[in-house]
């Protein structure tokens, strides 16, 4: 299992996946917002989303877990 973490302090803008969704490497799973920019969070590998740990408008810090991926 891989934990997908935020690389930056930001606000969660959109969550594009739900637990059980299959994703391919490179798919956008969450979009963060910081400094008026939309920052896509990309699936690092293919697999199934096992949990989503954030919701829109949540504040996240650098290193916070956003979702978990089963390969």
């Amino acid at each position: 299992m891989t934990t997908i973490r935020s690389e930056i302090p930001a606000t969660v803008w959109q969550v594009k996946v739900a637990p059980g969704d299959k994703v391919e490497s490179g798919d956008e799973i969450i979009i963060l917002e910081s400094m008026k920019m939309e920052i896509p969070v990309i699936a690092p590998s293919s697999g199934t989303i096992s949990s989503v740990l954030v919701a829109p408008d949540d504040r996240v810090q650098e290193g916070d877990a956003l979702a978990e991926l089963d390969q």
Binding site: E7, I8, S34, M35, K36, M37, I39
Partner: peptide, 8 residues
């Protein structure tokens, strides 16, 4: 790199 601080 616009991924961080909009490239600022």
């Amino acid at each position: 790199n616009p991924m961080f601080q909009a490239g600022a």
